[in-house]
Design a protein around this nucleic acid. Structure first.
Lengths: 210, 210
DNA sequence: GTCTATACCCGGATAGAC
DNA sequence: GTCTATCCGGGTATAGAC
């Protein structure tokens, strides 16, 4: 495959066009493998095999397994953050969180991977450490803004420091998610909406659960 | 080393006396290694070397690395649960949780290991899965009882289903702990006590923080 | 029962040829 | 960019010494 009929195109349209596509393919394959077998269980060889490549070809694009993982996480996370922003601005934090939770119920394995990696990357020497540090800081600070807005607009009654509320919300979500991943019989939505009521002080949230 | 001066004691005081001690030594060594290098990073060979044993000697006592891990977790967890029970019965949930948190601030690596393993063991096929399933069920149900007692005695004002409150408390603790493990600059005690106030509805908690 | 030695297979990483 | 070949370290299974 990849016959080198044109050793070099006259218009040197960047030697990286193909590389970028390969990288995307590898990330997609890795996402599938990691989600199915976990990070530990999934091997680079399996990822390579899925694309009819050799192990070293994969390694060439991503110097290490960890680097590949970071790419996977970055790619997986970007999609959902945007809609959350819009939702919270539009209908308040409680609505945005609940919708985020419901949307995530269908990508259980992706959540598992994120949860696993967050714990693993908690040590400062882990390759994905900085990424998770930044991610949590970004999420909490974004949520802090949203909470403050809800307070100003009178949508919630809890007047505590917005940052403390935001951190507690993220913690509640992470924690209940973990319990749900371990035992899917638990009702994640019910747990989150109950916690939202208590943490935000908005008795009207129950109506959003339906 | 380990000269066998007395090949066999005259009084056959159980052939397992030595074994039990060895097992305890191995668990201690494994705890140290796992806590330092993580479960993935720590190897059985390193654990064995720390005790001047061969790899297969370790395997003899614990048939697999996972079995050893379960033993480590069981050992690490048992100590702290008892005092929590007594505290909550005596001075209420809020006090017990805060004391539990403060006591755990000093065993950061142990908490990291527990958090990591909980995420890893969330998949049903993991060797430690059942253990974590049971553990969370045990913790939540114990906390449910404590919350109900606080409600009955008028120590807290939140009248919601005790089980929902208990699950939220555990989630809050797990989640804030994770954020703290990733970024130790976060004030874990402040976060937990703020969350406790909102989840339990007891304005007097602040005084416990000091 | 307790331990050692050896070997096997799989994983990630690296070097060098095309 | 991609390959083949090789290295090293990991968990595991087996045979056998005391």
């Amino acid at each position: 495959m990849t016959e080198k009929t044109t050793a070099r195109p006259a218009t040197r349209r960047g030697p990286y066009a193909k590389s970028a596509q390969r990288r995307a393919e590898i990330v997609a394959s890795a996402t599938a493998v990691f989600a199915a077998r976990g990070y530990r269980g999934g091997s680079l060889r399996e990822i390579a095999k899925q694309l009819d490549l050799s192990l070293t070809a994969v390694v060439h694009h991503f110097p290490s397994k960890d680097a590949l993982l970071v790419a996977v996480l970055e790619n997986a996370d970007s999609a959902n953050t945007d809609t959350f922003e819009a939702d919270s601005r539009d209908k308040g934090v409680a609505y945005a969180v609940l919708r985020y939770v419901r949307r995530n119920l269908e990508r259980q394995e992706m959540l598992r991977l994120l949860a696993l990696m967050a714990a693993e990357a908690s040590t400062p020497d882990h390759p994905a450490h900085e990424w998770f540090r930044d991610r949590y800081e970004r999420v909490v600070s974004g949520l802090t803004t949203a909470v403050r807005r809800d307070q100003d607009e009178g949508r919630i009654s809890n007047g505590r420091h917005p940052e403390l509320i935001a951190a507690a919300l993220v913690a509640l979500w992470d924690g209940l998610q973990l319990q749900w991943l371990i035992d899917p019989r638990r009702d994640l939505v019910a747990g989150v909406s109950a916690g939202l009521e208590d943490l935000l002080g908005d008795p009207a949230i129950g109506s959003l659960q339906q």
